[in-house]
Amino acid sequence: DLGRASVRRDEADELFYVAGIGDDVHGVTLLLRGSTDHVVDALERGVQDALDVVASPVADGRVLAGGGAIEVALASRLRNYADSVSGREQLAVEAYA
């Protein structure tokens, strides 16, 4: 739920303007430009494919953390553990975090 908005199109510049209505509006506008209509169409397909890839598993609730999630979690735990270690050993633990 992104809230409410009004959309206005400027035919001369071929632009869309999106203005939020209310205090709880959250949204994103992507402006895709290219040298030809073919390039813009390819960009639009690529963005739509990327959004579909993300939206489908999130909507289903079937998301598997990846892309370095394990490494990020491990580094966070090592940083927390380093606080409990004293002396030069702490520097060694922090170096791996």
Rank of each mutant, 00 (worst) to 15 (best):
R77F: 05
G68S: 06
S56A: 10
F16K: 14
Q48T: 03
V58L: 02
A75I: 00
E71S: 04
E11A: 15
Y96K: 02
R9G: 01
R8Q: 11
G61K: 03
V18F: 14
V85K: 04
A59C: 04
D10C: 02
T36Q: 14
R62G: 01
G68C: 01
D52I: 00
P57L: 13
A75S: 05
G22I: 10
V53G: 04
D13G: 15
T36F: 10
A97K: 05
G20C: 05
L91V: 12
L78E: 07
T36D: 15
G68Y: 07
A59V: 09
R45D: 14
D1H: 14
A95E: 10
V25W: 10
Y81K: 05
A65G: 00
D10T: 03
A82Y: 10
E44G: 05
Q48L: 04
L15M: 12
A73L: 08
D41F: 06
V39S: 06
A75W: 07
L43D: 13
G20P: 13
I21W: 11
F16T: 15
A5Q: 08
D52A: 00
D23L: 11
G87T: 05
I70Y: 00
V39C: 06
E89H: 06
V85Y: 03
S76L: 13
D24I: 08
D49G: 01
V25C: 10
L31M: 06
Y81S: 01
S76K: 06
Y96W: 06
G87A: 08
A55L: 08
L30M: 13
